[in-house]
Computed example of a mutant assay.
Amino acid sequence: MSFGQGGPEWGSGSTPDWAALAEQAERHRSRRRRWLMAGGGALATAAVAGIVALAVVNEGGGDGASDKPSSSLPAPEDLPSSSDAQPTFKDEPPPPPPPRDFIADAEHDKAPLSAATLFPAKRITVNGHSYKLASTSTSKNCAQAAHAGLGPVLTGNDCDTLYRATFTSNGLAVTVGIAAFEDAKTAAKVKKQYRPNLVALPGNGVPDFCRTVTCRTTANSLGRYAYFTIAGRTNGKESGPSDTQAQKVALDGSNYAYARVLQRGRAQSSEAAKEPAS
């Protein structure tokens, strides 16, 4: 009896070759395992590919992919027409320039200018201190209202006009001088070049003061205006560094000049705001 090709042969009356039969059976089992592993890997790959495909389909969430239009999108007839999308503008004029722009130069500073417009009140209160207006003066030749130090500075920078006013309080007096120039740059230059000092203005009960004695002075600028003060005792006594009262009066006069010049800008800005409406 014999097996097929490659199988063991039994001779007549002989016993089977058990070692050969065992080796042949082992070869069949090894071949079967290799085919099963290869098939299993292919199945695993197919399963992973199926999971990825499912994830791609369901990436947008919801109940799954659909070829139906989304219910959240507006219908064509609900979309705005081109006429509905036109921009709208409020019919409002632009705001006027800030007050400082109006006092920056002579071109924009067109409000009436005089001692009366700069010093309109007969009584003023500055920092809680009350003062009475004694007298005012206007000098087209600015150097005539200034001493030797300040006069050339005013003339050299083409001072247009120097307006002065004297205020009194409890034996003290302060003369405030406001000088007009072409522009803010020139006024700032005058402040930097300042030399003493403004001539004190007497009158209406105020004697000639701060002529030959030490007094307190200030100098500053705002817009196209430079402003100065000189303050001291009306009894003729000097007001040196230790005279803190005269110093406060000089500073009050300077603060008042600043407020009056700034008010010019504010008034012109307010008028400009009314012009479009009228």
Rank of each mutant, 00 (worst) to 15 (best):
T218H: 13
E107Q: 15
G151Y: 02
E182W: 00
A104R: 15
A85W: 05
P93T: 06
G64H: 06
D78N: 06
I51R: 10
A47L: 14
K189T: 09
S83Y: 05
L150Y: 04
D160H: 15
P152E: 04
G6I: 05
A134F: 01
R33Q: 14
S269E: 10
D243W: 05
S72M: 09
N157L: 12
G6L: 01
G41Q: 10
L150M: 09
T175F: 00
K248E: 10
A44W: 03
S114Q: 03
T218D: 08
C142A: 04
A180Q: 14
A121M: 13
R34D: 11
E92N: 12
F119Q: 01
A46K: 05
I51W: 12
P97N: 01
H129E: 13
K90H: 05
R164Q: 15
A143V: 05
A219K: 09
F119P: 05
W10A: 14
E182K: 15
S71G: 12
G41N: 06
E77G: 09
K140V: 07
S14A: 14
L118V: 03
S82W: 06
A121D: 15
K68H: 06
T218R: 14
T161G: 02
N127H: 07
C215N: 03
A257M: 06
A106V: 14
Y131H: 00
D63W: 04
G61M: 11
Q144M: 06
S2C: 00
T212H: 14
I178L: 07
P80W: 03
D17L: 01
G240T: 07
D78C: 01
P97Q: 05
A115S: 09
S135E: 14
A259I: 02
P241A: 08
F89V: 12
G253A: 11
A75R: 15
T136W: 10
A104V: 11
K90P: 07
R100N: 11
R123A: 13
T218G: 06
P207H: 02
I178S: 06
G177T: 10
S71L: 12
S254E: 07
T186N: 02
A188E: 12
R211N: 15
G253L: 12
A250R: 04
A165N: 08
V126Q: 05
S70N: 12
A219R: 04
S71H: 04
A226L: 06
P120M: 02
A104H: 10
W18A: 09
